[in-house]
Design a protein around this nucleic acid. Structure first.
Ligand SMILES: [Zn+2]
Length: 451
DNA sequence: CGCGTTTGACCGGCGC
DNA sequence: GCGCCGGTCAAACGCG
């Protein structure tokens, strides 16, 4: 898969040159993207690719089918069944491909983040050099995506994935990516940067071999989601286990700490707190990056958070102006020293939309400033010099908000049993590995309510 | 009896 | 150096 690299590079470039270069927008998926969309379409009807590309065929196997169909026209009857079978097979394959795609995009996101950061730092510290053999670390989950690279075998970058255990949490595998050529698409139109990232925010500091991150050793991005809910916890499609609870200082309501239990080593943490005044207001803060495939429901949020985190991280490193790309943007109470992106679902439209599929794109980017060059991740978001918290209120866009809300909510209906406990919970049943792309939602306990 | 939650102890960072 | 505080650990507890 050369794409990722390529695109990542694009990302970096866009980022680097945000001030001077004419590069306005980057088409990260100039080609693949379309496939992506197409696939998405095929598999999940609900999915609404918000991007121009509207291919009906996956461009992969469907074509095959078609051609076959034409070939076999002569022998109608018998072949019909054959074709059907074939069709089924193909569908299946497409599904698989889609999940692969998910994986890939996931790793894209991660890589993009990494690279972006690296580039940024180089930009600031060293002179920007070619990205020969950058060493980035990507959560294990992502690295697993390598296995999916076959469908689009192309360039070769050497990837050495060796998982290491970072200090406290985070299993990450360091990828040694040396790409030969990363083409640049100077003036692309679309900015599908995070079209499919599956990841929650991830701390990228510790990663880069560029290790420029030395200065801020512990900086991790967080993404907090605000939602109105009576349920004790926001369900995001993941399974969480409570590992602690504390009385927050200025808040009568305790803060609960959860960790993701969908996969053994998943480093993702989450803390849930209820707003002091408005008890119906839940604030969930995510930290870390999932190292395992996520159910579609979870992906919605994950995508968003991932993107958000990426933005933050990319930005937080440098200085930065401050601006709220989103109308409803509001700075939340700074949860901590960590850069935090806040998603505000509280005012979301009606969450009961039928949208089931996670929106392919994080809302942030959907709000791209028309005039403001998306600058890759930057997209109008500014890291606050003083405030590291940026709130992206997707609410402004009814459709988007609805989409996201719905996606997130989708899991909600199922708050089975233990969901009750203030802990939220998570059914005793161990989380089945839900394959990305699988339409089914985990019967996890977590409940979410966007209102 | 296994598993998840509860809850106080513990730890590291940070400000004074 | 000390105390505060956020965050995590882990033993105890409770539920199915
Ligand atoms: Zn996880």
């Amino acid at each position: 898969m050369d794409r990722p690299v390529q695109e990542t590079m694009l990302l970096c470039l866009a980022d680097d040159t945000e001030s001077t270069n004419p590069i306005k927008e980057v088409d990260f998926f100039s080609q693949n993207r379309r496939q992506d969309v197409a696939e998405g379409r095929q598999g999940d009807a609900e999915d609404s690719p918000a991007h121009g590309a509207t291919y009906v065929h996956t461009g992969l196997d469907l074509l095959t089918v078609n051609s076959q169909a034409s070939q076999e026209e002569e022998k109608p009857k018998n072949k019909l069944t054959t074709l059907r079978i074939e069709l089924i097979r193909v569908r299946d394959e497409n599904r698989r491909l889609r999940s692969m795609m998910d994986q890939l995009t996931q790793s894209y996101t991660a890589l993009q983040c990494q690279l972006l950061q690296v580039t940024r730092q180089r930009e600031h510290e060293i002179c920007p050099t070619q990205v020969g053999g950058i060493c980035v670390s990507v959560p294990e989950g992502e690295s697993s995506a390598h296995q999916f690279m076959q469908p689009h075998p192309t360039r070769m970058w050497s990837i050495n994935g060796n998982s290491k255990d970072d200090d406290d949490r985070e299993h990450s595998s360091s990828l040694n990516i040396s790409s030969n050529n990363h083409s640049i698409i100077p003036s692309a139109e679309r900015v599908d940067v995070f079209s499919g990232g599956n990841n929650s925010p991830m701390p990228m500091q510790e990663s880069s071999c560029a290790d420029t991150s030395s200065d801020l050793p512990r900086r991790r991005a967080r993404v907090s989601v605000r939602a109105r809910s009576n349920a004790p916890m926001i369900g995001d499609g993941c399974q969480w286990r409570k590992y602690g609870q504390k009385m927050a200082k200025g808040n009568p309501c305790p803060r609960a700490y959860y960790r993701c239990t969908m996969a053994v080593g998943c480093p993702v943490r989450k803390q849930v707190q209820r707003c002091a005044e408005d008890k119906t207001l839940l604030i969930a803060t995510y930290e870390g990056n999932h190292n395992h495939p996520l159910p579609p429901a979870a992906k919605a949020l994950a995508n968003t958070t991932s993107a958000a985190a990426a933005m933050l991280l990319s930005g937080s490193t440098g200085s930065g102006g401050f601006l709220h790309p989103f109308p409803h943007a509001s700075t939340m109470a700074p949860l901590s020293a960590f850069p935090t992106v806040a998603l505000d679902l509280t005012q979301s439209v009606n969450p009961l939309q039928q949208l089931r599929q996670a929106h392919p794109m994080p809302p942030f980017f959907m709000h791209g400033h028309p005039q403001k060059p998306p600058q890759a991740l930057q997209l109008g978001l500014q890291r606050g010099a003083m405030v590291d918290t940026v709130t992206a209120a997707i609410t402004t866009d009814p459709n988007l908000a609805a989409a996201l809300a719905a996606a997130v909510t989708s899991i909600m209906g199922s708050a089975p049993r233990s969901a009750a406990g203030a802990g939220g919970g998570h059914g005793a049943s161990s989380g089945p590995h839900v394959v990305p792309g699988s339409p089914q939602l985990p019967k996890s306990c977590t409940t979410f309510s966007t209102n």
